[in-house]
Design a binder for these strands. Sequence first.
DNA 1: AACGATAATGAAAATCATTTTCAATAATAA
DNA 2: TTATTATTGAAAATGATTTTCATTATCGTT
Lengths: 148, 148
Amino acid sequence: MPGPRNWRCGHQGYFSRWTVPREAILDLLKRTSKHMSAKEIYTAIYKFYPGIGLTTVYRTLDLLVRMGLINKLIFGPGESRYESKSGEKKKTHYHFVCTECGKIIDYDDFIDKDLELIKRTEDILSKKYDFKVLDHNLTFYGLCKNCK
Amino acid sequence: MPGPRNWRCGHQGYFSRWTVPREAILDLLKRTSKHMSAKEIYTAIYKFYPGIGLTTVYRTLDLLVRMGLINKLIFGPGESRYESKSGEKKKTHYHFVCTECGKIIDYDDFIDKDLELIKRTEDILSKKYDFKVLDHNLTFYGLCKNCK
DNA sequence: AACGATAATGAAAATCATTTTCAATAATAA
DNA sequence: TTATTATTGAAAATGATTTTCATTATCGTT
């Protein structure tokens, strides 16, 4: 069944028509383990659906982010990258980024302690600064084994 | 004494002349507690040094980042922001970013536990993935007290 | 203190990622 | 099957940053 589960009756005002490009982009991101940029997604879809436009890719990615189906990753200057929250990578994870070659490694080892700490920090700081925490980012930068 | 300490004899190949714009930009960042964008820095310097160019601001910020004197902060799409590592804010700290109004709060409370955990994570993961960790980013996103 | 080599500068143009505009297309309700 | 209009794609616009290049100013040498 195509589209987000129950889209026929419950797409919650995010969209009104589930289209071929939307299905193709969501499906691609669910199947890949990579962290793809808009242009990479465009190129991949273009191979089997040459009618695709880069503008539509950007618009669809924005929609999927708002729907909470994918994450937008901003590791530094240049292109943003996207990953699905379901499919290939459903577990919460963080990232290593190689500043030399751009390689990205997902890690979810020992993440319980990380999450515990982050929860604690959120609690303390939301009280102290009266700040409602909605999201966070923990990323490590360095050199991968090929570049160091 | 202007410039990075000992620049006369020890600027380590980063530059060969310490100029008025460089001094002005580094000085501004040392004195402010804000996280300023290139354009904001340009506007601030322009008030007392109207000869300044935005290009020079970008070039100088890049130099200071490479020298390790300032941090470049990328919180999301749009402008990058910069903060001095010495002066106003010498302690290691992390950030809260309000996604509504853009307000940024520095925090360094309870950061010892954060740092300890991050150190441990770095150790474990650099072994497992053979990755040399050089830097990391921990940022919280949400709504500040005025926006929530 | 002035000179000279050249590093650094600033204005304008170029670039890159992303967003907007708008006429054409296609998804869905009737 | 048709009609409505949300969605699309191409092209233009935008915003942040980088590059180009002729001019300027720093600082080692005189």
